[in-house]
Design a protein around this nucleic acid. Structure first.
Lengths: 196, 196
DNA sequence: AAGCTTGCTAAACAATCGTTTAGTTAGCTA
DNA sequence: TAGCTAACTAAACGATTGTTTAGCAAGCTT
């Protein structure tokens, strides 16, 4: 009974989203075709439209999950951490792990810009804002050096973080060096890794 | 005679590159069609192929000029500046001006990533490297705070710079605030604007 | 067993893509 | 003036795009 249900409504939507995320993350939105996605998911192009009305809706679904996953790793990394500096460190590390290793969904957020799809720009920006507001409150906790603008500092950090996939190669050592460097740009010493 | 020559070989290639740069910068490579470019240049799609063999070649030409223009503004801004910190400040400002206001060509460098066009990735990376090596030698002059890695610091700066178009709005004040913030991330005081 | 719903396939749809082709015009040369 | 070349235009090319359609098989319901 449970097996038949599992077989029946055999929820292929997650698999379709996975396939879409993988392609959107690697090739971008416009360079990805519905046939690409269907093939990776092991179905016919027509079948995709049983689950999703348009290609744009597919992107929006992936985008929303991408933000969810980044925030998720975020909260998990912050759990139990009290020191604001360490919290920031954990957040940076979580973001980097998400977009560099863990999740194609998270990489889509970084690879596909809202402006790339004019008809969906507002919706995409809204999703992105969910994440950025979370980062904003986190940075508000930190004592920035004198003269630093929290808003600009945050935007700078996001830029640095999101550009990382452009140059990062997995072979080149751990993420700690990168995290420390980004922390140092806020005048924060790299040493407090005692948090873990 | 000179007039007829001017009319005859009426070099439309620059106009075509302008049109291509404008569209590539605003919509990206894949979302831009040859018909878009032709229309903006005021010619027939077929005419484009008299001057350029393929769409990819068009991008490469725009890309090369984009790097040229960034470097050009770069050198001009650095002219006569001796203080390494001020030189860095001028370079950051020049970069931001180039990609935010001045040149669609420069914006293409930031908007279209080498990985977006797999068949041209290497060539595009080569162009990009011309600029980054210039920035590398510039950052080598600067005395970074203890514990900073020059390479990572440079990559962080490039990331922050190139992500700026994503959030920057022209209405929101001058670029000085942004430049100062980026400088501050290197532990450099914002004050030495006496350079101008 | 009959009928309905869910989830798909195979095939086609019109539109649009990068690109090509054939023909045309204007100016230069001789 | 005749011919040549540079610089196009108009139209079409085949391929690919996002999407739709018609049909079918399997399970659920009654």
């Amino acid at each position: 009974m449970a097996a038949t249900i599992a077989k029946r409504q055999a929820n292929r939507l997650p698999a379709l989203l996975d396939a879409a995320a993988a392609h959107f993350a690697e090739r971008g939105y416009h360079a990805t075709t519905m046939r690409d996605i269907a093939q990776e998911a092991g179905v016919t192009p027509g079948a995709v439209y049983f689950h999703v009305p348009t290609k744009q809706a597919l992107l929006l679904a992936v985008y929303a999950q991408g933000v969810d996953r980044i925030i998720g790793r975020f909260e998990k990394a912050l759990e139990g951490q009290r020191d604001p500096n360490i919290r920031l460190r954990c957040a940076i590390m979580a973001h980097l792990e998400a977009i560099l290793d863990a999740s194609a969904y998270a990489r889509v957020i970084v690879r596909v810009l809202p402006e790339d799809i004019p008809e969906a720009t507002n919706e995409l920006k809204l999703q992105r804002e969910r994440y950025e507001s979370r980062l904003r409150s986190l940075l508000a906790e930190v004592d920035l050096p004198a003269g630093r603008d929290p808003k600009l500092a945050r935007l700078m950090l996001i830029g640095a973080l999101n550009w990382t996939p452009v140059w990062y190669r997995k072979s080149a050592g751990s993420l700690d060096g990168i995290v420390n460097e980004y922390l140092a740009s806020f005048g924060l010493s790299p040493t407090p890794l005692a948090g873990k």
